[in-house]
Amino acid sequence: MKMKSRFDRNFDIINYTLLGILLFIVMYPLYFVIIASISDPNMVNAGKTLLWPRGITFEGYAKILEYKEIMVGYKNSIIYTFVGTIINLVVLIPASFALSRKELVGRKLFSALCLIAMYFSGGVVPLYLLIKNLGMFDTIWALVLPGAFSIYNMIICRSFFVGNVSEDLYESVKIDGGGYMRFFFSIVLPLSKAIIAVMCLYHALGHWNGYLSVLYYMRDPDKYNLQLILKNLTESISTKTLASEGMSTDYLADMQKLNEMVKFSTILIAALPMIILYPFVQKYFVTGVMIGSVKG
């Protein structure tokens, strides 16, 4: 083994250092939010909690748990994510399999219909009116049905099936007298655990993190998901502080302090499930990118 040249050694030192700095830049915001959420807001405002927490208090979290809305939002988010993802998968996986079969009569037509729908749409208002006319406002269906079939993900799945399901397997099923159903359920599905996991992750993440369709179609605050509640909370906190002139300065200061605390703990409350899940699912992200990148 040849020794590294001096240039390469210096290169390594610089490379490792820069990556370290990058790691710091990416992680610091999260770290700051964590320490600020358990620090005395006065210390945070004075800029004394840049590196470690000061005047540790969990009042911010206690306050958050008193917001009934947050708990309702959590529950709604879980339901929307669970139901939505299941519908997504049940629609997506069989359809992608069917579209991956080259002998399918009308395959070109179906693919064209998908592509057109991917790039051309009626727009926000026509969909809004449709959902209104279907009587779906304030129901979970407004959130999970319009996007039930994701064309972009269908393309990824289809290329997975084309690349990973060999013709010989189908021939052998056919010889045994089986049809596509048996082929799909007894052979294709067990072979496709990776792509199913990836799709599960993508869709679940979309349902959990999204707020736009909730904002559009849900009128009843009891139906809001966690993200929308947090959005509203941030906005109402800042407007409330502005609007509360004429109150005693003590009370104002108290409110201010409370709001300052809550703004950090809410971020963590919303981010926590994803951060906890992350180590378990991160390898599927890479898998997903790989499968997606070989589409052609």
């Binding site: 990416v26 993200q227 947090l230 991160q282």
Partner: peptide, 11 residues
């Protein structure tokens, strides 16, 4: 570095 990808826009 790709952990933030998991977080929601609101967060």
């Amino acid at each position: 570095t790709y952990l933030p990808y998991m977080l929601s826009l609101v967060v």
